[in-house]
Design a protein around this nucleic acid. Structure first.
Lengths: 141, 141
DNA sequence: CAGCTAACTTAGTCTGGCTAAGTATTATCG
DNA sequence: CGATAATACTTAGCCAGACTAAGTTAGCTG
């Protein structure tokens, strides 16, 4: 039985709002927004340059400048310089930033895990089986 | 083979950013934002009251007031009154609003369908098989 | 009918997108 | 080698869209 892409697209479109709503609930009552948590995550393994961060999050450079300004103001990241090129600015996690990242990620995954706990084993298996396809669907193109 | 919810939650968490990025691409270059398209969609089958719209989109009433203000300013919706209760304000699509909804939805579904076209038949079947589980996962709770 | 509740709106603040323009540094080319 | 172009950021200004607190009007209830 083949699944026409058009119908699947309509089905997925119907559900996109619910995905967004769920995402909002997953990050509610956290000290940082979903965007901020996402940027902190990019810094987990060391400093990154502004251009890299902007590209990774699909935003323009001025948007990332503002984002890092807020995170710096709140003491979660620090700006630094790249030795080899004096134009480059990097951002790195502060110890506080790392704590906030760890805690925020834990809460978010905890929330998702609770949701998954309501599913049957078969349903979880169906989601797991769809992950590679979803990867292909959602990755840049 | 059982799939632990914790691991699934981590796997899904990793992909959420890509979902958000894909969503942004799916609505880029449209005359209305994703939020606006979503609200227009709620009005497809007739006028709705402000409180209903706010609840349906998971936002507070003042947020929906501002949203409807923008849509009204752009000629896509009109405000009206409910006969039975003079406190109630309703919003309904204008003909232009209906056109914008139809066109925006078509573009968005078209974009998704293109993405699905890159998947194999098996991958599409896997996504289709996961839809009921995803419904359960993403619906209010 | 007095007072509470409900439905909206208004006002003010914040995050987080964008473009355009400015600054400083590096790279290129004649 | 020096002028010019390109690159990496920041600043300034605009807009959407989220929030809370407070104001208005209408309905409900004792």
């Amino acid at each position: 039985m083949t699944v026409p892409e058009r119908e699947l697209a309509e089905q997925l479109n119907l559900r996109l709002r619910h995905v967004v709503l769920m995402l909002r609930r997953a990050t509610a009552d956290q000290p940082v927004t979903a965007q901020q948590l996402s940027v902190l995550g990019s810094l987990e393994h060391g400093p990154r340059r502004m251009t890299e961060l902007a590209a990774e999050h699909g935003v323009r450079l001025p948007t990332m400048t503002a984002q890092i300004n807020r995170l710096e103001r709140d003491g979660l990241v620090e700006r630094g310089r790249d030795g080899s090129d004096a134009r480059v600015v990097t951002a790195r996690l502060t110890p506080t930033g790392r704590d906030v990242l760890t805690d925020g990620r834990e809460r978010r995954i905890g929330y998702l895990a609770e949701r998954f706990a309501d599913l049957t084993g078969e349903e979880r298996a169906a989601v797991a089986a769809a992950l590679p396809a979803l990867d292909k669907l959602f990755s840049a193109g």
